[in-house]
Write a protein that binds this DNA or RNA. Sequence first.
DNA 1: GCGAAGTGCAACCAAATGGTTGCAAGTTGT
DNA 2: ACAACTTGCAACCATTTGGTTGCACTTCGC
Lengths: 106, 106
Amino acid sequence: MSKRSESAAEVFSALGDATRLSLVTKLGARPQSATALADGSKVTRQAIVKHLQVLEGAGLVKHEKSGREVLYALEAKRLHEARDFLDAVSEHWDRAIERLRDMVED
Amino acid sequence: MSKRSESAAEVFSALGDATRLSLVTKLGARPQSATALADGSKVTRQAIVKHLQVLEGAGLVKHEKSGREVLYALEAKRLHEARDFLDAVSEHWDRAIERLRDMVED
DNA sequence: GCGAAGTGCAACCAAATGGTTGCAAGTTGT
DNA sequence: ACAACTTGCAACCATTTGGTTGCACTTCGC
């Protein structure tokens, strides 16, 4: 809840699409333009652009104009935050499991 | 791409909703029934059930019938997988950043 | 046995999502 | 100057999503 998990939901939602996830991994290698990313992809450049905007809205990506092209790059900070969220939940859960086990064991 | 990131997308998509994320954290404390989870929530039990089904479809949750009620519990394995995916991408990225820095430095 | 509690199923609805196409406008190299 | 390339914007479309309501069915407690 709170603001924390709202933004977390936004990040996860942005990652929750196969095309977008593919974009993230591609951008993990190097910054690229929308047309470059659309090359070899099943979908249109416009679709790619929309996906990049979603990723940017979630703070996972930033863009920078360079002449006539626009380069998109990954923003690792948000990825780390998302990972930390998962760590927090699963740690709680792991402890809960442990407690349950302790109660049952004899 | 591949099967790996398809299922990853499914997991992230399941987590990409504020209500669902809240359910995950609640289930992180202890297994609970849909009606218990719906108590104090803004939305209907039916909506909660649908969300739980989505989470279960992504393998994040499992359910078990106990008398007249149905208890939902977290499945930590998938959370770990999702975290590992984020680790992998951000590690690539961190290395890429490093390489770029090395090329620019003098 | 009967009412209350908990669940499951189905129909339905508005809004968001992922995608397309067409076209105008700003760069670039020759 | 001009053709080629890259981007941006808008309209439009089908499907998915998140949510509701109503009702039938099982299970518990007394």
